[in-house]
């Protein structure tokens, strides 16, 4: 993956938009009969300046890909955005790419284009996904005018659906990580949080496989059912 980024950066330095043809970005996939043990899923986490999607901004994006039920560390995304309007420096610091990139600086627009390309239209999972979805969609719309909807799934729903009897001490990501004794290398670092979310997702997918939930569609249905059940309990 790093090779790709380097190439991409090289192209950017040449001043050209390169492969990033905003009119020809990947089309998000829909919920279908994709096999969970083969399809690619993107697990994502955003760091933002605050909780209010209408005025706060995304400052970092971390994501890992699960493919074939395995996390591939050569297929990950780890960018820190410093938006011009949020920072006196007119730069986008891109971490995990190279010292050159750090000094060069890049537009948020480019980073987002790259993210879209990397996501490849695959379903996106996040912990409390509504939050990340709102921020990412807002940012994509504002910066790129991109409005195509990705499939989003909430890992915060996924876990209780497959581990209903787990006595976590709360409903946060930390609670689940603690419950399964997972290490978070650096909490509130987008990539590290994405990693632990992905690890929890692996556990849920392992369980799904065993109880016969085999496709993305079946998984979505399970979550839908879970949501209805929860709503019913409210009354």
């Amino acid at each position: 993956m790093f090779e790709h980024i380097k190439q991409w950066l090289a192209q950017r330095r040449g001043g050209a938009i390169g492969d990033h043809d905003p009119g020809n970005l990947p089309t998000p996939k829909t919920v279908d009969d994709q096999s969970l043990s083969h399809c690619r899923l993107v697990v994502l986490d955003l760091e933002t300046t605050g909780l209010n999607a209408s005025k706060d901004e995304v400052i970092a994006i971390g994501a890992v890909a699960i493919e074939g039920g395995v996390i591939h560390l050569d297929d990950q995304f780890d960018l820190i955005l410093r938006r011009p309007e949020l920072d006196i420096r007119e730069t986008v610091l891109i971490h995990g790419i190279g010292t050159e990139a750090l000094t060069q600086g890049h537009e948020t627009e480019d980073a987002l284009l790259y993210l879209l390309e990397w996501m490849n239209g695959d379903p996106v999972l996040a912990y409390h996904s509504a939050f990340d979805q709102k921020f990412l969609e807002k940012t994509l719309r504002a910066q790129l005018g991109y409005t195509l909807p990705h499939v989003w799934m909430d890992v915060a729903e996924l876990l209780p659906a497959f581990f209903p009897d787990s006595n976590t001490k709360g409903r946060g990501l930390d609670h689940w990580a603690d419950f399964f004794r997972l290490d978070v290398s650096e909490r509130h670092h987008a990539a590290a949080d994405a990693m632990v979310t992905a690890e929890l997702t692996l556990m849920a997918l392992n369980k799904a496989q065993k109880i016969g939930v085999k496709t993305l569609k079946e998984l979505a249905e399970k979550l839908h059912y879970q949501r209805r059940l929860k709503n019913m309990h409210r009354y």
């Binding site: 971390g62 560390l73 990950q76 971490h95 290398s185 990539a191 590290a192 990693m195």
Partner: peptide
């Protein structure tokens, strides 16, 4: 230090492990 920040967080975490 420079070297290290050029690597993604998750790669660094695995190296630490």
């Amino acid at each position: 230090a420079n070297q290290d920040t050029t690597r993604p967080q998750n790669t660094r975490a695995i190296m630490t492990f």
